[in-house]
């Protein structure tokens, strides 16, 4: 499962990040320790302001930590970014409106300097993977929100990174579309064997998708519990009615509540 012989996709030790603002320092992350093994599906869950997106952005080298150590695929986040080790899926699809869906998906390949034929071939392949075959010539505005987000997932996958970072990718979508995409994402993860780090604030989503659930709490942003899911890799939607599922969800909820009471 692990590539390059690296067992740990992400290794975080005593990580802190403090933003200096006009109103004084904001402790976005404090003493965070986390280990993500290659092939894991790890979710960060917590209320707004708990630093889950910030932690993800530190992994992606979009924010700089002010303390502690972090490695991604065994190297620094910057080296990992320069090596194009991860694909990032944002809260919004962030498709470029002047590019067709195919050319949007091929954007990273274009930046990496692949030839036209290979770009087209790979874009088509990954559009098929997210069930968007036949939409390659359409422009983003011609697609629904869910389809746009699927296209952005194809874009993150098309250069075949080991690590997929997803920041509340389905947050803006309705429940039905969300269920559907969650199922597809699990199949994708199963098929490709990638490591996924996923940010959400939905308990059922976190429990349904993850092998490990990281419960976070705000002010200062920190990890209060890491739950290893007992659920099997193969998960139909109705696993959400099973006692094991409800038990994990209950533990997540308790964790969140404990973190919240610290606040009052």
């Amino acid at each position: 499962m692990a590539r390059n012989g690296v067992e740990r996709a992400v290794d975080v030790r005593d990580l802190s990040l403090t933003f200096q603002t006009a109103d004084g320092p904001v402790y976005a992350l404090s003493q965070v320790n986390l280990e993500v093994k290659a092939g894991d599906f790890v979710s960060f869950i917590g209320p707004s302001g708990c630093g889950k997106t910030t932690l993800m952005r530190v992994i992606a080298d979009l924010e700089q930590p002010t303390g502690g150590n972090i490695t991604v695929n065994g190297v620094s986040p910057q080296e990992a970014r320069l090596a194009r080790a991860y694909g990032y899926v944002f809260q919004a699809p962030a498709l470029y409106p002047w590019r067709s869906i195919e050319r949007n998906v091929a954007l990273p390949l274009e930046i990496m300097g692949l030839g036209r034929e290979e770009r087209r071939e790979r874009a088509r392949k990954y559009l098929e993977l997210v069930n968007l075959t036949g939409f390659d010539k359409k422009y983003p505005w011609q697609l629904s929100g869910g389809m746009q987000q699927r296209a952005s997932i194809a874009r993150a996958l098309c250069f075949d990174p080991d690590l997929l970072l997803m920041d509340e990718p389905f947050g803006a979508l309705d429940e039905i579309v969300r269920d559907h995409l969650n199922e597809q994402l699990l199949q994708l993860w199963d098929k490709t064997g990638k490591t996924v780090v996923f940010v959400t604030h939905s308990i059922p989503e976190a429990v349904f998708l993850s092998t490990h659930i990281v419960v976070m709490s705000p002010r200062p942003g920190r990890i209060i519990d890491i739950i290893e899911s007992p659920l099997p890799r193969e998960r139909p939607l109705d696993i959400r009615e099973s006692p094991e599922f409800l038990e994990v969800a209950q533990r997540v909820r308790e964790g969140l509540r404990a973190g919240h009471s610290y606040d009052e």
Partner: peptide
């Protein structure tokens, strides 16, 4: 918008690429 710019950063795009493929269009 910031997301579109972050996206370029995640690909380690050069300034020149960010200009031609994002800012200019």
């Amino acid at each position: 918008d910031p997301l579109q710019l972050d996206l370029m950063r995640t690909y380690s795009a050069s300034r020149w690429q960010t200009f031609w493929k994002l800012r200019w269009p």
